[in-house]
Nucleic acid binder design. Sequence first.
DNA 1: TTGTAAGCGTTATCAC
DNA 2: GTGATAACGCTTACAA
Lengths: 346, 346
Amino acid sequence: MKSVNIQDIAREAGVGKATVSRVINGKGYVSRETSAKVKAVMERYHYQPSALARSLSRQERDAIGLIIPEANNPFFSSLLTGVSEMTDKCGYTLILRTSGNEKERDYKALEAMRYQRVKGLVYVPACNYENERDFAEMASRLSDLGGPCVVLDRPIHRLDCDCVLSDNFSGAYAATEALIHAGHREIGVIAGNVQLIIGRERLEGYRNAMTQNGLALHPSFLLTGTFDQEEAYRRVIAMMRSPRRPTAFFIANNRSEIGFLNAMRDMKLKIPDDAAFVGFDELPGQLVFELPISCLDREVILLGAKATQLLMRRFDEPGRPAEKLVIVPRLSLRGSERYVPQPAAR
Amino acid sequence: MKSVNIQDIAREAGVGKATVSRVINGKGYVSRETSAKVKAVMERYHYQPSALARSLSRQERDAIGLIIPEANNPFFSSLLTGVSEMTDKCGYTLILRTSGNEKERDYKALEAMRYQRVKGLVYVPACNYENERDFAEMASRLSDLGGPCVVLDRPIHRLDCDCVLSDNFSGAYAATEALIHAGHREIGVIAGNVQLIIGRERLEGYRNAMTQNGLALHPSFLLTGTFDQEEAYRRVIAMMRSPRRPTAFFIANNRSEIGFLNAMRDMKLKIPDDAAFVGFDELPGQLVFELPISCLDREVILLGAKATQLLMRRFDEPGRPAEKLVIVPRLSLRGSERYVPQPAAR
DNA sequence: TTGTAAGCGTTATCAC
DNA sequence: GTGATAACGCTTACAA
């Protein structure tokens, strides 16, 4: 672990370490020849300064932290890509941690970031931190962090910091309205995790679109819960077996969508004939296989990049008011939303 | 950026910093009451030691580096997941960098890791570093790193270090043989990037399977290059238009496979009727959509986890001989390999 | 233009 | 048991 240090270089070059430091950082006066001599020695020894010592001395870290719920999920790995490209380009070091959507691991991740004294954090929270207790805890932890934080994708209400979010409400609204315009009246919603604020926003978007278009909200058409793919699967099957069932669904997230698709497949039901739908976010491989699935698209990599830019901007201007960037998802209709009138049988 | 430090705690608790340090690290003698007092003060101030200072003093970093070609690719993000879970669990900090498959960025990433004085590195190289010059350069850079390195997925020949690789040769061999056993005689290969060693190994697996089964290698059935999805697309179309064409393909990687699938779709050709195939690695979404695509499966997350374990093991036993872990991909046949005799027309 | 010396926040070695 | 004190590798006044 012993690598050459600034002292070694100084000694070898016959100068003081301050001079070497000046050469490294290119600031302060240093004569042409001294500089050349020092550079030669550094070259010869493959010298590279230590970020650790440098940060400690400068009292300023060059690392940016990123916390995401999971890395093995196309949405988050696209966010990660956006963040990573930006940090690489701007000479920052990226420290990554995942929370697995668990509050405790989220706390651990936050602690790790503080421990490492990251200069700033791009943060996709594991949950909402909504109730007073959780919120206070989170606010305290973020303040302890010692650097700015940009909240990404999942809002934490009342928190006064920069964030990059999606307009889940209007996305859901547009998706639902697309189904209505296609001719559907009986529209269900597979709402995903309504524990999450973003889940509730999407649900609200659906509800408003329905009522504002004069359609009734049929309670049994609302599939909600904290659910995953399995649960969505079971509940879709139950729903499609019931005598009165929707002709279309707004599906608020990927996992539910996969559960839905599996259910449809296993029941030998056709899309959009037996049930039409519009989803949220592209499914992995959806474009590859050119599946005619309609959904709300977001430029996910860009979201990550934007968040990082916001963070870096705050490094420069610590005083500016918190910025809330809200991106509106774009609706892409590819056929799965179509209304196919049922033959007499029904 | 000024957070409370060990000195503040010591002062507040009315003890020396050495004592605080002992309390933090739980080693060395310290009386029950002193310990309690110090802990109380630490608690009150939300004190957390600085990893920077600690590493500098201990001369031992707690960070592990990971370099991958791209984050936004299901294969690499699964590797990342494996590495990340392991580092999180074992209390290491993960520093991530991507190379974009470019040598220069790969070098930059290596430099960044050294700059950060990572304790060790999990490394998926951007390219082969095969020729004498590149190899020497790489060996030198890895040695400068100052810590052990585990090479993951893409071998660097002659490099004496731990690695976790796949048996590309026998995977390709098995895939090709599956096509042969299914009844195919005219089998083409879409070899992907044969600049990469892993690309060549797969090509060789195909070749050996063919010749050892008494089948001739038809040169025009070999689609090779450094190619991406677009190029694969064009070349598959050209091939399928020619009078003599294969009835099946071994497709050596994901991108080529997507190009192939797009070509088949646009030419309105059916799988496996017009062309059967076996691919390498699952396509994103393949299982979701339950597509009957046959391919070689690898437990990718496990590869990342294994590599990290190997790295940590080397921390403990620096002297042990380099370990080469070679995982044999498992062949999953799901239908796309079937042989469908052509009607008279052909 | 250059060198000396005092930090930065820890740990570790000694005396006490 | 505990507290000075010297590292660790670097930056940055401040002198020279």
